[in-house]
Write a protein that binds this DNA or RNA. Structure first.
Lengths: 343, 343
DNA sequence: GTTTGGCAATCCGCCATTTAGAGTGCTAAA
DNA sequence: TTTAGCACTCTAAATGGCGGATTGCCAAAC
């Protein structure tokens, strides 16, 4: 949209209005902008500018005789053209680093911690999603009989992640058969990405001397083993603070919000679909296709471990302190990626 | 408390009052009880009885000229002396069985499903906690080098559960050393419970010909490997329906509630502390020591897999349909235990 | 002695009305 | 182009009255 030709006064008014609204959650009137922000203009002049901004669809009045509040497009312009990222305090930085690097914890615990710290220092909902395995390169697969009729399959991926699947088998699998299967799998599949393996498994398992029963087993459970089904785990923290924000005064908003959170699968899918490319992604209000999210914004970023990518970020009302959040999410994502290299 | 000498009229009034209140959430007056429940008494007589019940602390008036509502003690008497468990409908039964036995899913997925079905058919919060590993009997331990400096430890437990831990090691561990360590561990530890192993590991690893480096490694990471730290996982579903109940009209109640849910550790600990013994346990309102739970009730039960026990149940406001919930939780716990034997 | 009808008293929830305040849009003057 | 002034509009909060529900108590009835 052609908002590039906004003049500088309009931009400044929009900026001041949004900054003030983010703090107070109250519609902002012309007087406040004129006085508090010392723009050297009278309220009447500001009013004229505000009318222009309203016609452009960047701000709106909840009702006559109220001040203005930003629309989704208004926030979009703010984020694209006016955002000054706010440097983190040392305290926050060290808090983040401390949490993320917390010793010998597993990936899961780290991500849970991370969502907690994100929630805490932002007072919004901190979210983390564990990395997709799909892009992971198989380093090795192990088959371990653990009990009668149970076979534990361990899929180890470069960068140290591992996934275990418990499968049922007929109880009389021969150990030798199993070993053979194992080595065939390793010979033929190691070095490929899981996604790739999934697509080409049929071909790759042709012409072996393995037990056909086992071959069948592995072909049949293709999706369970190689697919990503619901492996990505979602952690979130900070719901309590979030719902005390004024935008959740209406109970229905809260119910909507929890419907959203309980439908983890679609939420994960959605977040992953949005976090394309490098760096921070911000989506605002109605830009989020999920209905229950139409009054929320998202500040997210990918993080990396090995070849695999996960997502972390913040979910909150469209009225959120974007400039702070961008720095926080960015710094956290980077710290997390660093920490996971070490892991 | 000596509520055993309540006369039968008092009991019937209490019962009717609670049944009605559970349905409507409105204070119940003497007229309703007299008419709706056809007790053959006039409202005035009921009023007298209600005064008695109030003096005993079983019911109370929110304000003059309102009907009465049950107190926590009132619910307690109701549950202990007046509860008629309501048989499940066939529809619900088959829903539960269907979900719980849903094919080849892993434990985690089953428990997640279970919490969902509990939430759905009760309109309260369905909760499941995965079993404690501590009582599990080790069937086998495997050591698998997955990458430079990484060692994957797989702890398999009778009944098919397995836990994997990724450890850091110096990169030049010798495969032969590892195999030896593995077989020593299996020889000396298989058949013992994890809890037992944890306590006696030092002694049991004395006098071996294993690499002292490896021995040290295993002793050092004792807690990570054998301990239960946060392994119990909590699933819950139904928050959205729960908070639409009238008792959550006050926003503070909702925030309290989510503080409770986000503090998973203490919630898990609490639920486990309450679920002693066989069968259903019901705790009401202030009987729950956690502050944020003082206006909620809990209907929980243990379930079993191998030697391990987990907990499932329902969390909701003290005004909950106890008689239904008891049957549902009971049936679900049993179905779950059955399904996990099969697993 | 127990139960009941009658009745005054109490308190809540709802509705309409009022009031104060905030902010606007427009117009005319600077 | 900017500003001051002013009539207008709308909200939020306060006020007051009314109807309804329920109680407690007392005296009469069973």
């Amino acid at each position: 949209m052609a908002f590039e030709n906004l003049n500088s006064r309009e931009l400044r008014v929009l900026q001041n209005l949004i900054n003030h609204y983010i703090q107070t959650a109250d519609p902002v009137g012309s007087r406040v902008i004129a006085n508090k922000f010392r723009m050297g203009l009278s309220p009447a002049t500001i009013r004229n500018t505000m009318q222009d901004l309203e016609e452009l669809g960047l701000i709106r009045q909840p009702h006559t005789s109220a001040g203005r509040i930003p629309t989704d497009s208004g926030y979009r312009v703010f984020v694209d053209m006016l955002l000054k990222t706010e440097p983190l305090t040392e305290a926050d930085k060290s808090k983040i680093r401390g949490m993320v690097n917390d010793g010998n914890k597993g990936l899961d615990a780290i991500l849970s911690q991370t969502s907690r710290i994100l929630g805490e220092i932002t007072s919004q909902l901190g979210i983390t999603i564990s990395p997709k395995f799909d892009e992971g390169v198989l380093t090795r697969i192990d088959l371990i009989p653990v009990a009668d009729g149970k076979l534990l399959v361990i899929v180890a991926v470069r960068s140290g992640l591992a996934k275990t699947i418990l499968m049922e088998v007929e109880s009389d699998i021969d150990i030798a058969e199993l070993r053979q299967m194992e080595s065939v799998l390793n010979e033929r599949l190691a070095g490929l990405t899981l996604g790739h393996i999934r697509k080409t498994l049929n071909d790759r398992l042709a012409n072996t001397s393995c037990s056909s029963r086992l071959i069948k087993l592995f072909l049949d459970s293709k999706s369970v083993i190689w697919e990503d089904q619901g492996d990505e785990k979602l952690h979130y923290t900070g719901a309590d603070k979030l719902i005390s924000q004024p935008e959740f005064a209406d109970r229905n908003r809260i119910t909507d919000f929890f419907k959203l959170l309980e439908n983890q699968k679609s939420l994960i899918e959605f977040l992953e679909s949005k976090s394309v490319g490098e760096g921070i992604v911000i989506t605002i209000g109605s830009e989020n296709e999920i209905n229950e999210m139409r009054s929320c914004s998202l500040v997210i970023s990918k993080y990396q471990t090995g070849n695999n990518f996960g997502v972390i970020g913040i979910l909150g009302p469209t009225r959120m302190p974007y400039s702070k959040l961008v720095s926080i999410v960015d710094y956290t994502a980077k710290s997390l990626s660093d920490a996971l290299i070490d892991l």
